[in-house]
Simulated assay, not measured.
Amino acid sequence: MRRHPLRLAAGHPLQLVLGLTIWSLWFVTVYGGLSVACAVAPPAPAQGAMTGLNGGLGLLTLATLGLLLWLAGWCLGAARRSSGRGRFMAALAAGLHLFSAAGVAFVGLPLVTLPPCL
């Protein structure tokens, strides 16, 4: 069975930076988008947290969180099936994906529950 050329194995060293890279791209996208939206068309402060802007940021946060949790589960499953160096790399990658998911959840929760642009 041939593997897709762009698919990384769970024990590949690039998995160690993938979760943190996804987190950093999410962070820059969310805060950059929030800053631009607040500069161009800020929602009324009377709306509170229930704005379209917070809804969009919440969906992006949930999608990123889901991706990171899926990657963590995939790497953890691969770690259970592997041995030696591959097991260590996959387990470490799973931990880093979980760490990145925790970062998304920790930053994303106040982001979507507080009124934007204050």
Rank of each mutant, 00 (worst) to 15 (best):
R2A: 12
R2I: 10
R3G: 10
R3N: 04
P5A: 13
L6T: 15
L6F: 14
A9D: 11
A9N: 06
A10K: 05
G11F: 05
H12E: 14
H12W: 09
P13M: 10
P13Y: 05
Q15E: 12
Q15T: 08
V17Y: 01
V17Q: 09
V17C: 05
L18G: 13
L18S: 15
L20C: 11
I22Y: 00
I22Q: 08
W23I: 00
S24A: 13
V28H: 01
V28W: 02
T29E: 13
V30Q: 07
Y31A: 04
Y31M: 04
Y31K: 12
G32L: 08
G32P: 04
G33Y: 03
G33M: 11
G33W: 04
S35D: 02
V36P: 00
V36K: 03
A37D: 07
A37W: 04
A37F: 06
A37R: 09
A39F: 11
V40Q: 11
A41Y: 13
A41N: 11
P43M: 14
P43C: 09
A44N: 12
P45F: 13
A49S: 08
A49D: 07
L53I: 10
L53S: 03
N54T: 07
N54S: 11
G55I: 15
G55V: 15
G56H: 03
G56C: 10
L57Q: 02
G58D: 02
G58P: 00
L60G: 15
L60A: 14
T61F: 06
L62E: 10
T64K: 07
L65G: 07
G66F: 13
L67W: 01
L68Y: 11
L68K: 05
L68W: 10
A72S: 15
G73H: 13
G73S: 13
W74T: 09
W74V: 09
W74S: 11
L76I: 10
G77L: 14
G77M: 13
G77S: 11
A79K: 03
R80D: 04
R81S: 05
S82P: 02
S82W: 05
S83V: 12
G84D: 06
G84W: 06
G86D: 13
G86K: 05
G86E: 13
G86H: 04
R87M: 14
R87P: 01
R87W: 03
F88D: 10
F88R: 15
M89D: 00
A90E: 04
A90R: 00
L92A: 15
L92K: 03
L92Y: 00
L92M: 09
L92Q: 06
L92H: 02
G95I: 08
G95Q: 02
G95F: 04
G95N: 06
L96G: 01
H97I: 08
F99D: 04
S100Q: 08
S100P: 01
S100G: 08
G103F: 11
G103W: 10
V104Y: 06
V104G: 00
F106G: 08
F106L: 15
V107C: 03
G108C: 09
P110S: 06
P110T: 08
L111R: 08
V112Q: 00
T113Q: 09
T113K: 03
T113G: 05
P115T: 06
P115V: 04
P115Q: 10
P116I: 02
P116M: 02
P116R: 00
C117K: 08
L118C: 09
